Structure formats: C-alpha cells, structure tokens
Amino acid sequence: MTGTGLFISFEGIDGSGKSTQARLLAEALQAAGHEVVLTREPGGSAGAEEIRALVLQGDPDRWSAETELLLFTAARRDHLERTIRPAIAAGKVVICDRFADSTRMYQGLSRGDLRGKVDTLHNLMIGQEPDLTLLIDMDPEKALGRAKARQTAEERFEDFGLGLQQKMRAGFLALAEEFASRFRVIDGARAPEDVAVDVLATVQAHLA
C-alpha cells in the first residue's frame, strides 16, 4: 500500500469497458464498507478537468506528442496533489480510470519514441505508481466500435483509427509484463457483470 490507503488504476484501450468496471468496483467496495474515491485521468481535479477538454477534444493533429506529454503531466500533478494523495493519506481506496501507464502508451509509444521522456518526466514530477493496476483487455476492433458508438465530444484519440488501438493493446500487454508485480490482466470480452466478478475478486485478494 501507499500511505495508509490503497491506490488502484484501470487501464485499457478505448472502448475496453474500464470506466464501467471502475464504477462497478467503486460501488461494490462502498457496499462492503470501504471509503472510496472514484476519479479519472485526465481530470479528477478542477484544473485537470480543464486540461482534459484541451487534450481530448478537437482534431487528431491538434497537439504534438511532446505537447500532449506536458499537458497530461500537468493535469496529473494537479490531480495527485488535490485528489489522490489526500484520499490515500485519509485511508481511502482511490480508484482511477487511467493513470501514468496511459501516458507511457499513448504518448510514449504510439506517437513517437518518447518513452524515455515520459518516464523521466514522471519520475521528476509525479513519482507515484498505483498499488494495483487492472488492465481490461479486449479485441481492438470491437473496443473501437464500442468507443465510437458513444458519440461523445471526447473522441480525439479514437479518431486516430484501428491501427493505434492495435498498437496500444500490444503495448499495454507488454507493460503488464514489465510491471508484473502490480498489473493484473482481466478478459474484458465478456458481459460487464462477469468481468466485474473477476475484478472484485482480484481487488479483494489484494486487500487481504
């Protein structure tokens, strides 16, 4: 554990169902008597939510990967200071829909060879990893179909197309091997309630 609480992140490609699973886990843990903070990235604090609108909306080529890296890191720092660390210190379970692993993938891998810069900036300005990361894994084509069907204003990364999602899936699975001590891979190609059972069991084992 970090501090006196627990920090859990959900990762996965767009449309994998990780946001739904984060919400279902929060509800299950709250029902079991835990104090839970459900949050997301980019976002999770007032300043970070403003940056979220900048990076998730607009044309795909609105920002370079380097500029995105700086924006995401600024949002994450504010989120960490104002939401995540205070909740952990208070003994709460923090459930975050995406964290630094998404930046390692989307900026560090997909749009240039920036992984070294991502890690350097993370070590300098963030310096925190989740205690447990749940990777919701599924077929990129099906996941992208789900994501596009939502028809929200926040589709900038989905608009990069299937090729990006395929690259991201492979990258996330490689990341799960790199950080095997905190990653758990969950099969997301099932009914949400079935996925939720595995997610909860995994978290309960960690809590125990």
Rank of each mutant, 00 (worst) to 15 (best):
K142S: 10
L56Y: 03
T133D: 07
M168W: 04
V36Y: 14
R52A: 03
G188C: 02
P192T: 00
I95S: 06
G145V: 03
I84K: 11
I13Y: 11
Q57V: 05
A153M: 04
D78Q: 15
L29W: 08
L6A: 13
F10E: 08
Q57C: 02
A170T: 06
G163F: 09
Q151S: 09
F99W: 10
R98N: 07
P192I: 00
A180V: 01
S181M: 00
E66L: 09
F172W: 13
F72Y: 15
R76I: 02
L54A: 11
A90P: 10
A189Y: 01
Q151L: 04
T202N: 03
E141K: 15
F179Q: 08
L175W: 06
T152Y: 02
L207M: 12
F72H: 10
F99E: 05
Q151G: 01
E158K: 03
R77L: 02
A174L: 03
K117I: 02
W63G: 05
I84D: 10
A46V: 08
G47H: 05
R111W: 09
T83Q: 06
V37C: 11
D198S: 08
L25A: 08
V185W: 07
Q21S: 10
G33Y: 13
R190S: 00
L25F: 12
D137P: 02
E154H: 09
F99K: 04
A22G: 06
T4H: 12
T152G: 08
A48N: 05
L24I: 04
S64Y: 01
G47F: 07
F160K: 13
G12D: 11
P86F: 09
D159G: 00
D194C: 00
E158C: 03
G91T: 11
M1I: 04
E27Q: 15
G91M: 07
S45C: 04
Y106A: 08
L200W: 02
Q151M: 07
F7Y: 06
N123G: 15
Q151F: 01
V197D: 08
D187W: 11
F183N: 02
L144P: 02
R23M: 04
H122W: 13
L207I: 12
V185A: 06
L70D: 04
L175E: 08
A89H: 12
A65T: 01
N123Q: 15
G3R: 14
A147L: 03
Q57K: 14
D101Y: 14
G15A: 09
